[in-house]
């Protein structure tokens, strides 16, 4: 008789709010999810929505007019040019650094890795200042370069250089952990079978790291096109000449041309969303091919 009642009470239990001992009650879960949602909504989604709402506040025609304006077009062109130089430069650097660091054992390796990460821990404004101190007209090399008619500070070369500085670590830090994990075994096999060094790199190493490489390039490009602080210091804000898109947004905004500012900003926001979408796709599809892919 007694065992029956126990069985009955055990059978009844799941019908009530049963939950595993290592989880929270459904109510707690819902509250926590709601808090996270509200916080992210206020901090992330509203600003993103505001960009597009303000950009289209005057309708399509004003939106397109703001983008077709000559200074805006010049800014877009400069942003593309800067990224087209800075990203390949840091791509080559990242591959070279990863090859030296991941495939060889040498002294001072961890110091080198730390130095590569340095641009991430220096304020962009301070990096811009450092470049002014080197290339400005009172700087270390500025007067000497001036004598040859070469302008770096307050000109396009300066913008390119600080952008390279700021985005330097992106490709290297994607490749180094992955290539360290993969080791040198496959390359050694290729070499022992008679392949040349370059051939080994092109047909063995590169295919192994291509997705991580793309991932690094993606993040590098997003930062290169969006960098503001460092570029703002070195550019001198010359309209139509040394204004990148983020700087153009600032100028329009400070002139109270809000709709135009948000219209140009919306292009940068679309770029950011595309970057996120591609990045998420790579993480989802090729998670195994990218060691330290998460956490940027």
């Amino acid at each position: 008789m007694r065992s029956e009642t126990i069985a009955a009470s055990v059978a009844e239990r799941p019908a009530k709010a049963w939950r595993p001992a290592t989880s929270e009650t459904p109510a707690t879960r819902r509250v926590l999810i709601a808090i996270a949602g509200i916080f992210l909504g206020l901090v992330l989604l509203l600003p993103l929505g505001a960009v597009f709402a303000q950009a289209f506040s005057g309708g399509w025609s004003l939106y397109l007019a703001a983008l077709a304006e000559p200074d805006a077009v010049a800014a877009m062109r400069l942003t593309l040019l800067v990224a087209a130089i800075a990203v390949p430069a840091n791509l080559v650097f990242g591959v070279a650094a990863a090859w030296a660091i991941a495939k060889f054992e040498f002294r001072g390796k961890s110091l080198l890795v730390t130095l590569i990460d340095l641009p991430f821990s220096v304020s962009p404004v301070i990096s811009g200042l450092a470049y002014i101190l080197v290339f400005g007209s009172h700087g270390l090399l500025g007067p000497w370069l001036d004598a040859y008619g070469i302008k770096v500070a307050f000109a396009v070369p300066g913008i390119v250089l600080v952008t390279i500085f700021v985005t330097l670590p992106f490709v290297a830090r994607e490749l180094i952990p992955l290539m360290e994990e993969q080791g040198a075994g496959e390359e050694e096999a290729a070499l022992s079978l008679g392949a040349s060094g370059w051939k080994t790199f092109l047909f063995v190493t590169l295919p192994n790291v291509k997705w991580a490489l793309l991932y690094g390039v993606l993040l590098c490009n997003a930062r290169a096109m969006g960098e503001f602080g460092a570029v703002s210091v070195i550019s001198g804000h010359i309209r139509g000449l040394t204004n990148t898109m983020p700087l153009h947004v600032e100028i329009l905004y400070n002139e109270y041309a809000f709709q135009a500012a948000f219209a140009v900003a919306s292009l940068l926001a679309i770029l950011a969303l595309l970057t996120l979408a591609l990045k998420t796709f790579l993480e989802w599809r090729f998670a195994g091919d990218m060691a330290g892919a998460r956490g940027h």
Binding site: G226, F228, M245, F262, H296
Partner: peptide, 29 residues
């Protein structure tokens, strides 16, 4: 949501700045 967490890394800071100002200004959303 997981993908959106990285938005601040991808969105240029100037864009974030003017967008946040528009929202948190006294007449903002």
């Amino acid at each position: 949501i997981d993908a959106m967490i990285d938005l601040p890394f991808a969105l240029p800071t100037a864009v974030a700045g003017i967008a946040l100002t528009a929202i948190y200004a006294p007449n903002g959303w």
